[in-house]
Design a protein around this nucleic acid. Structure first.
Lengths: 111, 111
DNA sequence: ATTTCTCGTCTACATTATAGACTATCGGGT
DNA sequence: ACCCGATAGTCTATAATGTAGACGAGAAAT
């Protein structure tokens, strides 16, 4: 149910990017994906702060992971979106969609 | 062009609702539309503050209008989204879409 | 004139967004 | 071993957005 507490614009992008990577994603890969797909540039500070917030709100979690990948160094944060996070994302999407109805052409959506 | 300075989540909803009303819209009708379509409840303060901010950023404008509507009282704010506002909306939409690609089923989009 | 609507203003505070300096760790020279 | 460059993540501070509620003004009903 509508659990109050909506997602900010950037929070939505972060959650979506994690999901895009599959079931889970390494932090900086998520960052790179957002930069690549949206063209925005994101500082590390801005990025991790948002990740931490999402964690505190119970919308994302992470675990230390040391990828067996050949030339690998320190353990990394491997992120996952929680069911709550997915719900929040759906709710945001619902709001946006309901107010965008009929405006696809105007918004150049469908490109 | 990417004019920097992105729209917040709620700002997007407000801009979209103004557009939904047609070319222009009375303030409180916009508010009612957002409440109706999204189920969120919005205080007057929150609403006007956002409207003012959008105006300062050049994304919306308004004029005093005294509707010839029969039982009418004081003049009202009639809002309009500027071309800059529409651009910003498109850019936000683009970012969201590019990161939502392929996730429609998961996000229950297409409801 | 007093109450009661509706519309809008103003103030204050919470949450989110964002940058940049700082720390730590690993791998590769040398 | 020691230094260097690179990568990953932390911490602090500040700006921008989001949100509520008290307040004021005009018109209409009583």
């Amino acid at each position: 149910m509508g659990s109050q507490g909506f997602l900010g614009e950037f929070e939505q992008l972060v959650l979506l990017a994690v999901i895009q990577e599959g079931d889970s994603a390494f932090a900086l890969e998520v960052r790179r994906m957002i930069e690549d797909r949206t063209g925005r540039s994101i500082s590390r500070g801005a990025f991790y702060t948002t990740l931490d917030r999402l964690e505190r709100k119970g919308m994302a979690t992470w675990t230390q992971e040391t990828p067996k990948d050949q030339r690998r160094r320190a353990p990394l944060r491997l992120y996952r979106v929680t069911p709550e996070g997915l719900d929040a994302l759906r709710e945001s999407r619902r709001a946006l969609d309901s107010l965008s109805r009929g405006l696809d052409a105007l918004l150049e959506r469908g490109r």
